[in-house]
Design a protein around this nucleic acid. Structure first.
Lengths: 102, 102
DNA sequence: TGACAATATATCATATCTGACATAATATCT
DNA sequence: AGATATTATGTCAGATATGATATATTGTCA
């Protein structure tokens, strides 16, 4: 199975290898999940570009390492609000965030 | 006071006319609020373009008229998740959503 | 003007998200 | 290999968002 697909299923709470598939996801759901994963990716990128560990970023965000990890993996308990606020906080430009939509 | 500014202050829970001002808002906070207001606007636009009432849209979203009103006014109790999910549900393109960032 | 439709605001119980913590799993060294 | 740094996963109490309901306000007709 493709890696992106695995991530998407995981982020919906599905277990990889289960019988569940995209069939159960509406277009809106897929779009929403894809968006979250795209933003996750941007966050991880920006963090690494700045040579920060998850712990360092967590401190910057007044959050915790574990939550940063969840943010970067598209965990279902992470909201768009948290992702986007974090991106703004790390200094991502609106432009770079907007790209996640394309 | 400019209308946009009024909306922003309101969305932070400030009362219009109070002594509070932008001075208390960090760049990230402003960016986040501006984004929410931009998305609010797109949602209201799209709804009107489709000649839907808030109640009709609410039914479509399996939500309530009052929440749609709050979505469209940038109410602080409305998340980016709800806004963006709603935009996807109403059929807004990623492109049109991305524009809210620019 | 009054009647009706549409939108806005307030409140609340339930649902969901959040930071924190513990601990497990990986990576990166010597 | 072991030691250490980094990242991932599980859990939970407190915080925040949600849909629903009631009601107020505003708009739009005749």
């Amino acid at each position: 199975m493709k890696n992106t697909k695995k991530k998407i299923l995981k982020s919906k709470g599905y277990t990889i290898g289960s019988a569940e598939d995209f069939l159960g996801l509406s277009k809106e759901e897929s779009e929403y999940i894809e968006l979250k994963l795209a933003l996750s990716g941007v966050l991880a990128e920006q963090r690494k570009r700045k040579n920060l560990t998850q712990s360092q970023l967590a401190k910057l965000l007044k959050s915790s390492q574990s939550r940063v990890a969840k943010m970067e993996s598209g965990d279902p308990t992470v909201s768009l609000d948290l992702l986007i606020k974090s991106l703004f906080a790390i200094g991502a430009t609106k432009k770079s965030i907007a790209k996640a939509f394309h």
